[in-house]
Design a protein around this nucleic acid. Structure first.
Lengths: 114, 114
DNA sequence: AAAAAATGCAACCAAAAGGTTGCATTCCGG
DNA sequence: CCGGAATGCAACCTTTTGGTTGCATTTTTT
C-alpha cells in the first residue's frame, strides 16, 4: 500500500541544504569537533585549521543556516553547539534512497528470473 | 577500547564530495529518479525539469565524479545508472556522527548527574 | 540519402563560494 | 581605566558553480 509512497517521500528535497553544508571537508571537521556535544568558541574551533578566524566564522554561519549548529553569545565569545536533528533527518533520507534502490533491484531481479 | 576510535573514524572526510553532490535539489531529484535501479538517458532525465539538456548533463557529470552514478554509451544515447555504494557510505558516516553525539551526551549527562 | 534524435564540446556569463585584510566593538582582567 | 582577547562587519578578490547558446558529431529512422 505505502510501497510506492517511498518514491514520494524521497522526493522531499528538504535535506538539500544540509547536504550542501556538509559538502566541504572544513565543515565536516567542524561538525566532527562539535559532535562531542559541548560548546566551542570560534577561536577554539579555529585552532589547528590552517584558515583565518573569519573563514571559520563563515563556515559556522553556513552550518547554522542549515540548522546543524546553534550559537549563543556568552560574554565576549559566541559558543557553538551541534543540533543533531538535521543530521539525523539527512541520514534517514539516505536510508530511504537506499531502501528504494534495494526494493527496486529486488523487483528487477524477480522479473528477470521468471 | 575502540570507543575513542569513533572520533578518528568520523574524521575521515571521504564523503565530503558525495555530500556536495547531493546538496542541490536538482541532483537530489535525479538521484531519486535513478534510484529505481534502471538505466535512464539524459533526455529522459531532462523531462519535466525546467532546465536545458546541457544543464542536466552537467549535473550528471557532478554526480558521476562523486561516484554516485555511472554512465554507459549505448548507440546514440548515454545511459546513467545509480551506484549505491557512495550513498550507503555517506549514510554510515552520518550514523557515526549521530552515535558519537549520542554517546557524548550520555557521558555528559552521567557526569552532571553525579 | 536525408532528416531527425541524442549527445558532446566550447565559449560565454552571472551569481555564489571561499578566502583574505582592515577596522570597529564589546568584554574581561589587572 | 586600559590593554588584550573575541567577535562582528564590510570591502574586496579569485575561483567555482550553474546556467545558457551555438555548433559539430554520431546514430537511427524513414
Amino acid at each position: 500500500m505505502w510501497l510506492h509512497m517511498s518514491r514520494v517521500e524521497t522526493r522531499s528535497k528538504a535535506p538539500a541544504p544540509v547536504f550542501a553544508a556538509l559538502g566541504c571537508v572544513t565543515r565536516l571537521e567542524l561538525v566532527s569537533r562539535l559532535s562531542d556535544g559541548k560548546e566551542h568558541s570560534i577561536t577554539a574551533l579555529t585552532e589547528g585549521l590552517d584558515l583565518t578566524r573569519q573563514a571559520i566564522s563563515k563556515h559556522l554561519q553556513v552550518l547554522q543556516h542549515a540548522g546543524i549548529v546553534t550559537s549563543q553569545r556568552v560574554g565576549r565569545e559566541s559558543r557553538f553547539t551541534i543540533r543533531p536533528g538535521p543530521i539525523t533527518r539527512a541520514r534517514d533520507y539516505l536510508t530511504r534512497v537506499s531502501n528504494q534502490w534495494d526494493e527496486a533491484i529486488a523487483r528487477l531481479r524477480a522479473t528477470v528470473e521468471q
